[in-house]
């Protein structure tokens, strides 16, 4: 079953106290694809991911993975929160952060094993951050910080990856490294769900798109979703978005 199951969201509704944040969301997130979640600020993108993981209470609906509630399979999930959720002045080094990915696997009252150390090193190498192993997390650039969090999720050996706006404040080099890893993970049959808001050229890196604005606007193959009408419904006004045509010309 490893890496073949999808996540099925059915009729999901989320409220913050009395304010409705998500209404009647039903969709599938497929393994083996890089799926992007798009929508304007406040559309409920972060809320969707948090609700899927049970980080905030769900009013109605179900989130199933392989027939079971996703909340019962959290050890298979790697989640990288939005930049703003992290205190970048916290006294931790790159290595400390990466090894957080091994905490659940290691179990209570135990020290990290040599296997865990190796996993941590491999994950750091993969995002090209070995040289920064002993740096405090606050002394890195935004792109480097994001790569460290990606390494943490890799060290976790998860089957399901959730990233909340990993490309905010990130340099081109980091963006390429991150997308390459996303595609490698997808090729291994993992589930990759990435929140983004940039409708620029990088959108061609996504296989599937979820377009959200409190309700589900569109979901499916990128080219089908990227219709002007869908974007208008999601973003509420004329938006300029990257056209596939010019990408072929440029390529």
């Amino acid at each position: 079953m490893n890496g073949t199951a999808a996540i099925a969201i059915n009729n999901l509704g989320v409220y913050y106290r009395t304010v409705e944040a998500l209404h009647n969301i039903s969709l599938e997130v497929l393994p083996g694809k890089v799926t992007g979640v798009f929508g304007p600020n406040g559309a409920g993108k972060s809320t969707l991911v948090k609700a899927m993981l049970g980080l905030i209470p769900v009013r109605v609906g179900t989130v199933l993975y392989d027939g079971q509630p996703l909340q019962n399979c959290l050890e298979k999930v790697a989640y990288v929160p939005q930049r703003s959720q992290i205190d970048w002045t916290y006294p931790v080094t790159v290595w400390d952060v990466v090894m957080m990915g091994r905490v659940r696997k290691t179990g209570w009252f135990r020290r990290f094993s040599t296997v865990s150390h190796r996993q941590g090193m491999e994950a750091l190498a993969k995002v090209q951050m070995e040289a920064y192993k002993n740096r405090p997390i606050g002394q890195l650039s935004g792109g480097q910080q994001q790569r460290v969090f990606l390494a943490r999720s890799l060290a976790q050996e998860a089957d399901i990856f959730f990233f909340d706006e990993p490309f905010v404040g990130v340099d081109q080099k980091t963006e390429n490294i991150i997308f390459n890893i996303f595609h490698e993970l997808a090729d291994l049959g993992k589930i990759i769900l990435v929140i983004n808001h940039d409708l620029g050229e990088s959108i061609t890196n996504f296989d599937e798109l979820i377009l959200l604005n409190k309700e589900l606007v569109a979901v499916g193959d990128r080219k089908e979703v990227l219709q002007e009408e869908n974007l208008y419904r999601a973003y509420g006004s004329k938006v300029t978005f990257f056209s596939e045509m010019s990408s072929h010309l440029a390529a």
Partner: peptide
């Protein structure tokens, strides 16, 4: 350490 650094991340891995 995990919990105090990244509450959501810690909660997300269960």
């Amino acid at each position: 350490l995990f919990y105090t650094f990244d509450k959501l991340g810690a909660q997300a891995v269960g």
